[in-house]
Design a protein around this nucleic acid. Structure first.
Lengths: 169, 169
DNA sequence: TGCAATTGGTTGAGCGTTTGACAACTGCCG
DNA sequence: CGGCAGTTGTCAAACGCTCAACCAATTGCA
């Protein structure tokens, strides 16, 4: 109890600034995509990942991991995108339980059309305000945070009540 | 539209690293709070803001702004915290349509109990992995992004403050 | 005074996400 | 072959959020 190291005033400010900036940034990104393509950012991510994959298709599990999404969430999202005709599901020939999600030509066209505005928004909200050094710094900081989060999954600090390790694939 | 400046490879990597880090960080924070206090991070924020206010109470509007939340969202959230006995509503004497949200003693106690674990989590996931210089950098970067987002709200639309169209024509 | 416009806040319906349970299938071991 | 475990993906209910209407008090204006 007494061992809790509270945040310094600087850390407090940094943490809140980070929360506020992230909130504003993601809201701006999401709003722009919602308005121009009618989908949230998470859906856009799905299209991007598929567009970069060989044959523009991926197994559902790989896609879920690439999009930092749960399988359930991805399944719903793909269903939505399927309704729009932007994605289609294909059975996996080698493993009959598996499914591929594949970007349709219409989906690729929609992505191409929406990418311009999206990139513009990312520039306006993130890269243009920052100096090149800050971009480098942000990249390094982000990698560090992500690495720490990945590493911290199994180790737990005080009370790791859920001892589910072996999350590696 | 032909003038779209695409992201460089470095910018791509920085953007994706940022998205991944933010996702992991917020998920970790949210999960820890959900498990230890049974509320999402947005609700915790409400308790924190109230705890810092004079008389541990704030007008609903001010609280909404402090929490970067819509009035509707805040109203629902306060209703739930009220059910738990952590927050109570008070009529504003000077303006009879107004309401105060005030942290109850039970709410303050819950916050005190949960804060230790939360701070620990923020340290583990954010501050401990970063160097002091990086913390400063992150703060500066965050302030810049937030300022850019704020500034972008008013420009573009003259009378429409929320329809942020004005993308490539 | 009287009436419209604005502000402060609530409510309810609809939507998306999460969670836990479940079905389908593969692989392994006896 | 038969059963047990692990993997892949779907489904349904619960929860939080957004949107649009709504009520009530206040302000502005004639």
């Amino acid at each position: 109890m007494a061992g809790t190291r509270w945040l310094t005033a600087d850390e407090q400010r940094a943490w809140r600034a980070y929360l506020e900036a992230t909130h504003a940034l993601l809201a701006a990104i999401d709003g722009q995509l919602q308005q121009s393509m009618g989908v949230p950012h998470a859906y856009y991510e799905i299209l991007v990942r598929l567009s970069e994959a060989p044959d523009r298709s991926l197994r559902m599990s790989q896609l879920a991991e690439a999009c930092m999404s749960s399988k359930s969430r991805l399944s719903h999202a793909v269903a939505r995108l399927e309704e729009r005709g932007w994605v289609e599901r294909l059975n996996c020939p080698s493993d009959r339980r598996g499914q591929f999600a594949r970007l349709t030509p219409a989906g690729f066209a929609a992505l191409e059309a929406g990418a311009h505005g999206h990139v513009e928004q990312v520039r306006n909200a993130l890269f243009d305000p920052l100096s090149p050094e800050q971009v480098d710094q942000l990249a390094a900081i982000s990698r560090t945070i992500a690495a720490a989060a990945d590493g911290a999954m199994g180790e737990g600090g005080l009370d790791s009540c859920c001892s589910n390790d072996a999350e590696e694939a």
